[in-house]
Write a protein that binds this DNA or RNA. Sequence first.
DNA 1: GACATGTGTGCAACCGCTTGCATTAATGTC
DNA 2: GACATTAATGCAAGCGGTTGCACACATGTC
Lengths: 344, 344
Amino acid sequence: MSVTIRDVAKASGVHISTVSRTFSAPHLVNPNTRSRVLACAEQLGYRPNRAARALITGRTYNIGLIVADIANPFFPPLIKAAESQARKHDHHIFVADTNEDPALEEEVVRALAKQVDGVLLCSPRMSNALIEQLSREVPLVVVNRQITGIPAVAMDVAGGARRAVEHLIALGHRRIALVAGPRGSWTSREIRRSASATARAGSAELTIIGPNPPTEVGGLTVAEDVLRAGATAVFAYNDLMAIGLIEGLLAAGARVPQDVSVVGIDDIMLSRLTRPKLTTVATPTAAAGRAAVDMLLAHGDDRRTTAHVHLQTELVIRDSTGPGPGPHSPADPGDVIAPGGVAS
Amino acid sequence: MSVTIRDVAKASGVHISTVSRTFSAPHLVNPNTRSRVLACAEQLGYRPNRAARALITGRTYNIGLIVADIANPFFPPLIKAAESQARKHDHHIFVADTNEDPALEEEVVRALAKQVDGVLLCSPRMSNALIEQLSREVPLVVVNRQITGIPAVAMDVAGGARRAVEHLIALGHRRIALVAGPRGSWTSREIRRSASATARAGSAELTIIGPNPPTEVGGLTVAEDVLRAGATAVFAYNDLMAIGLIEGLLAAGARVPQDVSVVGIDDIMLSRLTRPKLTTVATPTAAAGRAAVDMLLAHGDDRRTTAHVHLQTELVIRDSTGPGPGPHSPADPGDVIAPGGVAS
DNA sequence: GACATGTGTGCAACCGCTTGCATTAATGTC
DNA sequence: GACATTAATGCAAGCGGTTGCACACATGTC
């Protein structure tokens, strides 16, 4: 049915091992023979069977890419960049979506382990211990997370969060809400830590609302909590939530940014298209995808390359942030109500 | 290194063929033996090597999914649904992005052919002839295209286009522009055909602008052409272009929908979030992803299942369309200028 | 008790390819 | 011209599984 190495061998009058070497070790075969074999292969439409090759060499030329939610606009640019970079190195990408479910994450890694040269774990929700264990079964590169001993591509979300909160403080906001992301997210912890420290340093009050699902709906549903907390500015775990939040705020009659300023993080395509346009922290998503693939492929040679790539983020000021109530805001700690669903 | 069928055989005191049958033909092995083997396998953490299995059975349990542009928000829901549906049947998905390039499309299909049980070709830009040829090399299901002899999942874009244009006509618009999609797109041809027929039936004038790249920028850049054509309403090839177009129109000083009404197609998530919210034709993207996977897997048994699945579309009226200039519009065919980039 | 029947397991070939080793021919060295 | 060296190719084992066939044994039938 399908044309194999034997067909090519027969057609070009050499042994199959010569054909094999023509493709995997060309320098070992006589140039004349080589070109004859290549001609036959071309003519027959021969393509090496990677599965068969992988069986012996252990290299599959496949990469697993695991994301929490393909439909979250944060991921597509990353996937696209990774796929393109992988193809440059003749690798293919398995994409799996875990629906934000840590258990599914583990299962998918295990299911993919034997069929890939390595797995890119994007924004994993698993525990560090589990990730370390899995990394013994298959080469792993984590994106948006830092674990000692595991190669990682991290974006400087802490720096981004700092700049975002500083921006709000500079605008005169003193009562800021942080709409947190999902439990188990490293990014969420980083943001929380950095935003808290920055608020403290700027003598602003930070109310943490969450955890929440990292979706538009997640943002929409906390709009009331934000208003009840009396915040004049909000920093959200990601753009999708920020956009949902703005929807919710507008629906509740609050104006953005006149009454409430909103900052997101990610700079997804959407952020330039909503009204008001979203002020946000741009994360280099595509660069992260490329870097992760590069690390994984480099990784192969020397297993202890636990380098960590750090990518810079950048504050993009658009229209969803504006001046706060000013330095003389009648902020009375007494009327800060702790609404349902608010944690610290 | 990795635990194989032989390790399990040794541990449970049976021949490897018995272990093999325990997994691939359980009814052939004695229940006692079976449970013993399963226990050993579980304890050793054995996972069958799919590549090795594929070598003999010819079934890889992999599916290729080829899209024109992952970053186009139309695709992620489709990919997500397909991946999820595939996983239900214990299949994995290779995702490839072709950057809207037909040549790359062909190359990717060929590269994937041997490693998958079939390929889902989403919105292919290739010629029918080429698709037919490829379908002889690997089982194919096309999405958003119809080719006799090839299983397909098609959305009723023609019906959608009709309803969109009828909606504009009902609002009183008589000079309508169609912002066309990329060359080679079946959807683009369907839309053009259906929109033309509907306009003619409704005594409206339809100016076709394009072809254009199916992106936000593609829409943005034709805003001037639309205004120059004197159209009071526009139907765009997809939501992304419609949204870009609205940006462009607003930037040029035109109000939407007061001066120009805009309808898109796809109902991507974005469409609910922009201002004004986009009137559009909703296409059942996730359903298409699921259906395509199902067809491909069913396909396996009986190669001549060239069924075509047809999915309904639906007009979603939001805020980007409004009343036209009315029946007494001073439309003078004489001042219809054919701007640069306008085709018919 | 002889025989057909069925059940569970082992044996070995094979899927398409890679690779260490043996073999042969060509080349260089003194 | 004998010998070591190098280059090019063939041979065959094996990667981790599957599967047709043979075999041993237990049962049922007359």
